[in-house]
Each structure stands twice: as C-alpha cells, then as structure tokens.
Computed example of a mutant assay.
Amino acid sequence: MAEARLKPDFSRERAAHRAGEVPVAGVDEVGRGPWAGPVVACAVVLDPARVPEGLDDSKRLSAVQREKLFEAICATAEVSLAFAPPTRIDGHNIRQATLWALARAVAGLPCAPRLVLVDGNDLPPLACTARTIIGGDGLVASIAAASIVAKVTRDRLMASLGAAHPGYGFERHMGYGTPEHAQALAALGACRHHRASFAPVRARLAMPAPEAAE
C-alpha cells in the first residue's frame, strides 16, 4: 500500500522561532519558463496561531483551492509581492531577474525577517540569514503559501493581459510555450509583454512581423 504523501508543515518555522529567528519568511516565485509575462515573486510570514489549513505546492492544487487559500493567506499573514517584467528578464537573464524579484519581495515585508526559507537551491541577495530548500513548496508551510499567492497573482495578471491583447490566449496558457501560443506568435508577432531573449520569441522577432502587435 502506497504511503500518503507528506504535506507542507510549520515545523521548520517553529524550530526557527525556538532559536530566536523571528520573523521567518518563506519565498517562492512563479513564471520562470513562460515566453511572456513577468516572473512573480512572493514572500510570506505566516502567523503561527493562524496557519491556513490545506497549504500545499500550488501546482498540486486546483484553481478553486488556490483561490480560497489565497484569500486565507492574505487575511492572516504578512505578504509581499515583486514583479520582474520582460524588460528586466531580457536585460539581465531569467536567473538574475528571478533572484532580484525574490529579494524585492523580502524587502517589501512590513517587518524585516531574521530568516528566509527559499524554494530551490539558489539564494537571492539578502541581508539576513537564508536557507534554500529543494522542493520547499511541498515541505514548508510558508513557502507553500508564497507559491500559492504568487501563482494566483500571476494567473490573474495574465488573464488581464489576455483581455488587453486578444488573440494570444494569455488567459489560457499564462504565457507558457503551448502550441496555441506558438500559433498566435506566428500569426500576430510578439507584443511588448513577450520575452525577446527567449528563443521562440527571438526567432519570431527576426522575421518580418505580419502586423504590429502592441
């Protein structure tokens, strides 16, 4: 019989609290891979007395579950968001733009954290102690919360870009490199929300655009 999958918990945060490392923030980002739209980074400091139930890696949750948890997190925790737009991604590369956004999200918290728990294995430039945790969005409650807020925020943003730029399907594929997106890029050319440094967009920009798509 298969063992039940572990869910994110608050144990690492509690251990940090006992060691005097308060506040503790979890950080995560969404949107490194898409051809269009920003990277959205989020930092969350959970209230130990009001940790929302059901936290998990945002990819393992349905859209309805993410929306409900988004509201619960924003109502009970300290939350900060930062955005790395396509211009920064193209000017600095996706890794540097992502680390910049993560650091900006931490800097935007109301109270500076003593410890930051970061999803993955790459540390942003921070003035406080930080630890990377591979797969942290599926292990650490505050990182899971950050992943949910970042995902819902970015999905909402891409839906609004879809309304502003009809034909690309941003509201469905969220800027990722789907066949629908590739077909739209071929037909419409790139708009200002595309990442010109990404190969499929760069290839399209090298060709005569059928029409301006601003």
Rank of each mutant, 00 (worst) to 15 (best):
M174I: 10
R156H: 11
H165M: 13
R192S: 15
G177K: 08
A186W: 00
G177W: 03
I143K: 12
G138V: 08
A145V: 07
A163G: 15
F170Q: 03
K151C: 08
Q183K: 14
D137W: 05
P179E: 13
G162L: 01
A144I: 11
G167N: 04
F170E: 01
Y168M: 07
Y168D: 02
V149T: 09
F170N: 05
P166I: 01
G175P: 01
G189D: 06
A150C: 10
V149S: 06
M158E: 00
L161M: 12
S147G: 14
R192A: 15
E171N: 05
A159R: 12
A186T: 06
M174N: 03
Y176G: 02
A141Y: 08
A150F: 09
T178E: 08
V149I: 10
L161C: 03
G177T: 02
A150R: 09
K151V: 05
Q183Y: 00
Q183D: 13
L161E: 00
A159E: 11
A144P: 10
A190H: 04
R192H: 14
T153P: 05
R172D: 09
G135V: 15
P179I: 15
T153I: 01
M158P: 00
H173L: 02
V140T: 15
G189Q: 07
G138M: 10
R154C: 06
L139S: 14
L161V: 02
R156V: 01
Y168L: 05
L161N: 01
Y168G: 03
S147E: 14
A144Q: 12
H193Q: 13
H181A: 10
E180G: 08
A141I: 08
P179R: 15
K151Y: 07
A190I: 02
G175E: 01
G138T: 09
A145M: 12
A150K: 10
A141V: 10
